[in-house]
Amino acid sequence: MSEGRTLAGVVGLCDDAESLLCAAEAVRAAGYREWDCHTPYPVHGLDQAMGLKNSPIPAICLSAGFAGVGAALLMQWWMSAVDYPVRIGGKPLFSWPAFVPIAFELFVLFSALAIVCSVLVFCRLGRWHSPLHDSDVMRLVTSDRFAVVLCSKDRLFAEREAAALLARAGCGEVRPLYEHEEEDGSLI
C-alpha cells in the first residue's frame, strides 16, 4: 500500500466536533506528543482536551505595548528637549501631557505588530507545503470535517497502532499520510 513512499503520519477523520473531542482526549491519554487536530473553525474545549497551555501572546502583546510607550516618550523627549529644544509658550521642554497621544498610538502600534509577529511564529505560518497541504485532507478540514493527525515523528508512533488508536477513539475514517503525495487530477 505504501509503494515505497515515506509515511508522514496517520489521519483520523471525524464528522462532528464532539467525536473529535473524544478522539483528542484518547490520543492525549495514550501519551502522544507530536500530534494535532485540524478543524474548520475553533472548537470549544479542544484546547483542554488536547492539554494545550495558554498562549503567551497576551503577555508578549502587553510587553510590546509598554516598549512602544517607552520608545515614544524617549523619542519625544530626546527630539524636543535634548537635540532640538524649542521653548513654546513658556512650557517646560519635556511637557509630558502633550506627548501622551503619540505614546498611546505607539502602544497600540507596537502591540499590534507584536501580535502579528507572534501569530506568524506560533501558528507556524509561512509554511506553504507539508504532507497535509499536499493531501486531500486539507480540503476537508478547511470545509466541514475534523481531523486528528498523528505524526510519524512521535516516539510512540507505529502505523498499525496509531491507526487502531484513532479507530478506537471514534474516528469514522482513518487514512495514512505520505510525504510528497501525488496531487489529484482536479488541479487544472
Binding site: D36, C37, H38, T39, P40, P42, V43, L46, D47, M50, L52, S55, I57, S118, V119, L120, F122, C123, R124, L125, G126, R127, W128, H129, S130, L132, H133, M138, V141, T142
Partner: peptide, 13 residues
C-alpha cells in the same frame, strides 16, 4: 500563509 486549521494554531490565533 499556509494555514492548516491546526488547533495548536487556532489556540494562539
Amino acid at each position: 500563509l499556509g494555514w492548516t486549521g491546526s488547533n495548536r494554531a487556532w489556540s494562539h490565533y
